[in-house]
Design a protein around this nucleic acid. Structure first.
Lengths: 67, 67
DNA sequence: CTGTGACTGGGAGTCCGTG
DNA sequence: GCACGGACTCCCAGTCACA
């Protein structure tokens, strides 16, 4: 299981726990909706800036998304 | 303190704890020497792939580098 | 040994749309 | 609501010469 897949799984789980659509989440987190879709499918290799945005939005440490 | 600076500090600390030069470390971790220099100065915004390489080399969770 | 400016190819990230 | 595609811009990955 590589980093991208771990991020994908954690991201989808956290988003669904808060009952948000990809579009709502993308908008509120300041990321493009198609990019969120790609991330949740493990199709992208994001920079740490983007991962930080996600972590800040969910109010979890970055390790909770990547480890 | 943003993510890049935290990574920079953690990276330099871990490398120095192991008493490695940037060149030694870069070679052994499979990263270019000047890229390591940039990372330790917070001049780059790396992707999670690169950060994973660092974490694997140091045998620490990714969160230990970014959180 | 390390910092820095410059360079190129490829990929990060965005925006349009479709079923 | 989501997956997926094409097209676009800009920045990152990776390297080099030099101080």
């Amino acid at each position: 299981m590589d980093v991208r897949q771990r991020l994908a799984a954690n991201l989808r789980r956290l988003r669904q726990e808060r009952e948000l659509s990809q579009e709502q989440f993308a908008f509120e987190a300041g990321i493009h909706r198609t990019y969120v879709s790609d991330l949740e499918r493990g199709m992208r290799n994001p920079t740490i800036n983007v991962v930080e945005k996600l972590a800040l939005y969910f109010e979890v440490p970055i390790g909770a998304l990547l480890d």
